[in-house]
Amino acid sequence: MKKVLPVLAVDVVLVIVFCAIGRRSHDEADVLAGLASTAWPFLGGLAVGWLATFGLYRNKFDPRLVVPTGVLVWLSTLVVGMLLRVVGGQGTAFSFVLVAGTVLAVFLIGWRAIYGRVRARTSR
Results as ranks from 00 to 15, higher is better:
1 M>C: 12
2 K>S: 15
2 K>Q: 12
3 K>C: 01
4 V>N: 10
5 L>H: 07
5 L>Y: 15
7 V>H: 12
8 L>E: 04
9 A>M: 14
11 D>P: 06
13 V>A: 14
14 L>N: 05
15 V>K: 00
15 V>Q: 00
16 I>W: 05
16 I>D: 00
20 A>V: 09
23 R>L: 02
26 H>I: 06
27 D>E: 15
27 D>T: 14
31 V>R: 09
32 L>M: 13
32 L>T: 13
35 L>T: 10
35 L>C: 11
36 A>P: 09
37 S>E: 12
37 S>G: 15
38 T>R: 08
38 T>M: 10
41 P>M: 01
43 L>S: 02
43 L>G: 01
43 L>W: 01
45 G>N: 01
45 G>W: 00
45 G>A: 03
46 L>R: 00
47 A>T: 11
51 L>E: 03
52 A>R: 05
52 A>D: 00
53 T>E: 00
56 L>N: 09
57 Y>D: 12
58 R>P: 09
58 R>E: 10
58 R>I: 08
60 K>Y: 10
64 R>N: 06
65 L>T: 13
68 P>M: 01
70 G>Y: 07
70 G>A: 05
71 V>A: 04
71 V>I: 11
75 L>V: 12
77 T>C: 08
78 L>E: 00
80 V>E: 03
81 G>I: 06
85 R>Q: 08
88 G>I: 01
88 G>N: 10
91 G>H: 07
93 A>W: 03
95 S>V: 14
96 F>P: 04
98 L>I: 14
99 V>N: 03
99 V>Q: 02
99 V>A: 08
99 V>I: 10
100 A>C: 07
100 A>I: 09
103 V>K: 01
106 V>M: 12
114 I>C: 07
114 I>T: 08
114 I>L: 13
114 I>A: 14
116 G>N: 13
117 R>M: 14
117 R>I: 12
118 V>L: 15
118 V>N: 13
120 A>E: 11
121 R>F: 14
121 R>V: 12
122 T>K: 11
123 S>D: 15
